[in-house]
Design a protein around this nucleic acid. Structure first.
Lengths: 238, 238
DNA sequence: TTGCTTCTGTTAGAACTTATAACTACTCAA
DNA sequence: TTGAGTAGTTATAAGTTCTAACAGAAGCAA
């Protein structure tokens, strides 16, 4: 958090502190009650200040939510980066590691995960440049895992490496050089969409409601995920 | 809507009428503004009654939302049933038809689709028996399409056939006889989860934000969907 | 140190929301 | 015709977000 050489003024540091405090309480409310139950008023009360004080730190509720979404994206990205096996030699193993990490992250913080994909929430525009950027940084990691260009060193938070705003190392670079039309990019998107589909249904309780063993189902989907991934990235079969 | 032999009292029919009126206005609000902007107060105003009057018809806001969710599930189910090609001979064609119908339904009413999978919404329990039931009726159709047991006659709304509460014909029957552990069932779930993943990301604007051609991506995913579907339902390959 | 400026937090209040309570008036059925 | 149940009304409570106006402290510069 304090990688900067203390260039910030004492007031700015205080501001950041309070902004973080607000987010901490907001995450608590998010954890038990979902995004709807995040209330600036209640946060203020819990922080010991009264109501409108928080509007000095967040323009409105949506800005706070946006901030939470971006943080969550970055957190997810870091979790994927740190997945054991994300830098394996075998592509299949890398993808499996990614998938497991993705699912685990979501299951451990369901409300936070839902926050990410419930986007067109109240009024805040999901197409905010910052949110898109954060989303793309996750995509960068997915892409990096698939192409095996993650860079074996960094298995920790990207922020700690001081690698730019959301510099995802090689993968970010890949994002630029190979454009959206590249096969790897499309494959990454499809992997992501499948993972999201599975996890989303699981969190929504669909599997539970139908008496299905989600773990077993996930294993099956994992197998197909990697199979089709390989068959598509290296089209061997007729 | 009036398949019953007019056994209902005039008052009950009036009640149903008002409940429907409320839902109609609610759907309008849902269409422009999302689920958050559904307000009992505003609905009442638009209907010319004042505020608390609606509480005679819906216990609370969540009950209205629950009702909308169930309707949406049934609507989606009917759309899938009516998909041109859902009763084709080729399994691959059936699944493709299903997938296209699914995506179309969602894209035509994004907010309504999101309502379905935003489940753990405010306070209403997504695991309400009725909602689970409605969700399962969609699964029934997916399963029916995959197994080719839809019954060639009924391409129209299930309700119009008077086939029980959400009687999905053969597929509902299949749901009972072959349990959740059957390969077809798991395959149906995986197909559904992939469709949901794709559509969800698309509606969320992820593809647009990354400058990806969603149509092309969908076509690719469609191909893999059916390929892996076949390879799994009939494990031919070593 | 003095003084100015900027920032932070306060209270008051507007405009909403969901939801309940109490009361009136109507309709339906015996 | 009488009586029950229903439908609507207003008033009200307890929330929410967010603005406005103001008080006071903190930082900064001369």
């Amino acid at each position: 958090m304090e990688s900067e050489p203390r260039r910030t003024s004492i007031r700015e540091r205080f501001r950041e502190q309070v902004r973080d405090d607000v987010k901490v309480v907001a995450l608590e409310q998010l954890a038990d009650g979902g995004a709807e139950s995040i209330s600036l008023n209640a946060i203020a009360k819990k922080l010991g200040v009264s109501g409108p004080a928080l509007y000095r730190y967040y323009a409105n509720r949506d800005e706070l939510l946006k901030s939470l979404v971006i943080d969550a994206y970055h957190d997810l990205r870091d979790a994927l980066l740190a997945a054991p096996g994300a830098r394996d030699d075998q592509c299949e193993d890398r993808v499996k590691a990614l998938a497991r990490a993705y699912r685990s992250w979501a299951k451990d913080r369901p409300n936070r995960y839902e926050l990410l994909f419930k986007p067109p929430l109240p009024g805040y525009d999901a197409h905010s440049a910052e949110i898109s950027e954060a989303g793309r940084s996750v995509m960068g990691v997915v892409l990096g895992v698939i192409t095996g260009r993650l860079g074996a060193e960094s298995s920790k938070s990207v922020d700690e490496k001081g690698a730019g705003v959301n510099g995802v190392l090689d993968s970010e670079e890949v994002l630029r050089e190979r454009r959206a039309s590249s096969p790897e990019y499309q494959l990454a998107l499809r992997v992501w969409s499948r993972l999201h589909g599975f996890v989303s249904l699981e969190l929504g309780g669909a599997y539970a409601a139908m008496g299905v063993d989600a773990d077993a189902l996930f294993d099956t989907e994992l197998a197909v995920l990697t199979v089709s991934a390989e068959s598509l990235s290296e089209p061997r079969r007729p």
